[in-house]
C-alpha cells in the first residue's frame, strides 16, 4: 500500500510538474484546473501520511529511522500546497513555474521516502 502510494505520487507529481510547466511555456498562470490537480496530488500525499503513520504504529521500522520518515512525509504533504498558495499571489507564468518546481520537489521527496522506508 505504501509502496503503491509512493509510486503513484511520484508519477502524479511529475505529471503535475509537466502540466504546470506547459502552462508556463504558454505564458499562462495557474488556473482552476491546475488547482484541482494540486488538490488531487495533495490528497494522495495526505493518504500517504496516514498510511505511513499507521504502518509505524503497527510496529514497522523504516530503514533510516521514524523521525526522518515522518519529516519527509510531512515535507511531501506540504510541498505542493505551499507552492500552490504562492502561485495565487503571482498571476503570471512564474506562478506556474513555481508550482511545477514544487511538484518536482515532491517527486524527489518520494524517491527519498522510498529509500528511507527501505522498499
Amino acid at each position: 500500500m505504501l509502496d503503491a502510494l509512493t509510486v503513484t505520487l511520484s508519477v502524479a507529481a511529475l505529471a503535475l510538474a509537466a502540466w504546470c510547466g506547459y502552462a508556463a511555456f504558454r505564458d499562462q498562470p495557474t488556473k482552476d484546473w491546475h488547482f484541482i490537480g494540486m488538490a488531487v496530488v495533495s490528497l494522495l500525499a495526505l493518504a500517504q501520511v496516514v498510511v505511513g503513520v499507521v504502518r509505524l504504529a503497527g510496529g514497522d521500522k523504516p530503514d533510516e529511522g521514524a523521525v526522518i520518515f515522518v519529516s519527509y512525509l510531512l515535507g511531501a504533504l506540504a510541498a505542493v500546497p505551499a507552492a500552490g498558495f504562492l502561485s495565487l499571489g503571482e498571476r503570471t507564468r512564474w506562478g506556474s513555474v513555481t508550482v511545477s518546481a514544487g511538484a518536482v520537489v515532491l517527486a524527489v521527496l518520494e524517491v527519498r521516502l522510498h529509500d528511507i522506508w527501505g522498499g
Partner: peptide, 25 residues
C-alpha cells in the same frame, strides 16, 4: 517576490527547510 523572484524565494524556502531540519537532526 514577483515574477522570477517567486521561483527564487520558493527554492530558497525549500533549501532552508531542508538544510535547517537536516542539520538540526
Amino acid at each position: 517576490v514577483r515574477g522570477p523572484g517567486l521561483l527564487l524565494v520558493w527554492l530558497y524556502g525549500v533549501m532552508s527547510v531542508g538544510a535547517v531540519s537536516r542539520s538540526a537532526y
